[in-house]
Amino acid sequence: MLGNQASVRLYLLPLLQAIWPGFLPGQYRARLMSASWQTPDMVLLRFNVSSRWPGFVPGQHLLLTLTHNGRNLSRPFSICSPLSLWQATGQIELCCKVSQSGSFTPLLASLKSNSVVNISAAQGDFSWQQPAMPALFIAAGSGITPIASMLLSQRHWLAPATLYYRVRGTENAALLQRLQQLAAQQPLFTLHLSDSRFEHSDVFTRQIGTAANNKQLYLCGPSAFMQQLSTALVQAGVAKGDIFQEQFGPALPVLAGGDNSGQHQVALQHAAGNKVFTASANLSLLQSAEQQGVNPRFGCRIGVCFQCVCDKVSGQVRDIRSGALSGHGSEQIQLCISQPVTDLVLKQ
C-alpha cells in the first residue's frame, strides 16, 4: 500500500534489479552449468537452481523465463533429470527441442555457460500415480522428457513398467543412453524403441492396444499423436481414467475432426468466473466474445487504450493490424486487435 504496488517487493523491484539484474519476483534463479546436444535438434541443459526453489515431482514442468531484447519471454519445459540429481547437487536438467524458426528455443540453445535465467516453481499433475501397479509409458519425440524423469527417479521398483519410445530414427532419440542403462540394470523395466520411419503408426497403435491391458497408461508427445492414440486406446476398451497425459509442445491449429473452418475454443479465466466461447478466425477475439455474451473489459476497440489487455496463458493469436503472429507461450494481448490462430486459454 505504501508504494502503491501490490507488494513491498514489487515496489522495491527497481532497486532489487539494480543489485541483481534480471531479478523477477515470484521466480527462482537458475544458472546454466552445461549444455550438450542430445540429438541434432534437442539440447540438454543443466541448471544449478536457487536453494529457495521448492523442488518437483518427477513428470512436472516449469516455466523458463528469458529476457531478450528487453522482453521477458516464457515457455514451459518438462524436467527430465531424476529427483536424486536435484537432491544431491541442487541441479536439474531440461531437454529442449530447438526449432530454428522459433523465437524462443534458438535463444535457449545459444545461452552461454553461467548465464542466469528465471524459472517458476514446478507445476502440473502429470506424475506416476501408483508405482505398485503395472504401467505402460508411451513417449513420442520430445515427449520423452517428463517420462524419463519419472522412470529415472524411481528407486524401489514394485511392478513392471514398459516404455514405448517412438522416434524418427534412433539418432533422434534423446536421453536414450540413460534409458538403455536403466533397462539393463532394472529387470522390471522394459524399453521398446519404435522407429516411425519403418514401423507404421497403425502397427504401433495395435501393439500398444494389446500391451495396454489392465495397466495405467502415461502418454506424452505431440498433440496430434496423443489425440490419435488415446482415441484408439479408448476404442480398444482401455478405461479413460487409466490414461494420464501431458499436453506437450504447441497446441496444433487443426483440431479433432480435422476441420479447419476457423473456429477456436477460447477459455477465459476471469475474476468473476470462467467462461468458454468459440472464436472465429476472422473476427477479433473481442467481437467473438461479445457475440456470445461474454463481455471482457474493453475500451477504444482500435488497440489504443489497452482496456482489453488479457494474459494469454497458451495458444497463438494474430495481430489484426500487422498480421504478426504471436508466440505460443504466456504473454499479454489486446482482445480488440487479436484473432485466434489456435485454441486459447486467456486470463483477464
Binding site: Q5, L10, L13, P14, L24, P25, G26, G70, R71, N72, L73, S74, F306, V309, E331, Q332
Partner: peptide, 10 residues
Amino acid sequence: DWMNDPLLHS
C-alpha cells in the same frame, strides 16, 4: 506492455 514485466504493465 511489450516488455511483459511484472511491474511496468498497463
